[in-house]
């Protein structure tokens, strides 16, 4: 039987690349996000390339009250059975701007942490009662240690990673699997102009998607992608705070 998968923030570069792989292996996809025209084009692409079933569903992460009805809508479209949810929405704020303006700071936390937590709860409740399913959520290596250059983003993503640890613990008895995805530098529109796409540290969305797809199938708990970030972060985390606070990172 084919899996029904909901992708939140389906317009993002990583989401699009993962959707290609899921559609190629026969998943039925609900593409959820704000820009209806874009998502319809993404859905059409999956239908044309892979003969897959793909539908665009409107979803606004910042409209918290809509999260529960949105999830009901998704369930309805999938005849009550959703096997997996991939959460890809997020925003990379300007650290300096967040230090100056409360609005930017709040927006960064609202999108990256509060909205994700808010929408994950009705989903988790459903999967708990369904006693099966998987949740794959994109956080970031930036959450592993706060650095002066982007600690607002890092703190929000760290919060989300911690939220997922708890959720994984809670859903373990129900057989629901939670995957925390920590990408390093990925060449998407979110990072355009900030990263040199030719640097060996910068991965393509497709390479990251390959890792994510494999981690979902193998029911991994925490994925660093590309793999070498696990080592880099191991080193960064092990630096004593008394030294780390003096570094310019």
């Amino acid at each position: 039987m084919s899996e029904n998968v909901v992708i939140l923030g389906a317009g993002s570069g990583i989401a699009r690349a993962v959707a290609q792989r899921l559609a190629a292996r026969g998943c039925r996809l609900l593409l959820c996000g704000r820009d209806a025209d874009e998502l319809e084009r993404n859905a059409a692409d999956l239908r044309v390339r892979h003969n897959a079933s793909a539908t665009a569903v409107p979803f606004d992460a910042l409209d918290f009250d809509s999260h529960a009805p949105f999830w009901e809508n998704c369930l309805q479209q999938c005849d009550g059975r959703i096997n997996g949810v991939l959460l890809c929405f997020g925003t990379l704020p300007d650290q300096q701007q967040c230090q100056r303006e409360t609005a930017s700071l709040r927006h960064a936390f609202d999108v990256n942490l509060t909205a994700a937590a808010s929408v994950l709860h009705p989903i988790a409740a459903h999967m708990e009662s369904q006693k099966s399913g998987w949740l794959a959520v994109i956080t970031s290596v930036a959450g592993d240690r706060g650095r002066q250059s982007n600690y607002v983003y890092g703190a929000a993503k760290a919060g989300l990673s911690t939220f997922l640890q708890g959720l994984r613990n809670r859903l373990q008895p129900s057989g629901v699997h939670v995957l925390t995805i920590k990408p390093g530098f990925v060449a998407t529109s979110m990072t355009e102009g900030l990263l040199d796409p030719k640097s060996p540290l910068v991965a393509s969305p497709d390479a990251v998607a390959r890792d994510i797809d494999r981690a979902i199938r193998k029911r991994r708990n925490v994925l660093y992608t590309p793999w070498f970030w696990r080592g880099i972060l191991l080193v960064i985390r092990s630096i004593p705070e008394s030294i780390f606070k003096r570094l310019k990172l």
Partner: peptide, 26 residues
């Protein structure tokens, strides 16, 4: 922000420093 990079055609002649952007939506 946009990327500045040295860009040419397949023949790599000429190459020039260009601002490059890769939009992913209309």
């Amino acid at each position: 922000t946009v990327n500045q990079q040295s860009l040419g055609g397949w023949g790599n002649c000429p190459r020039e420093a260009c601002s490059v952007s890769q939009p992913d939506s209309r």
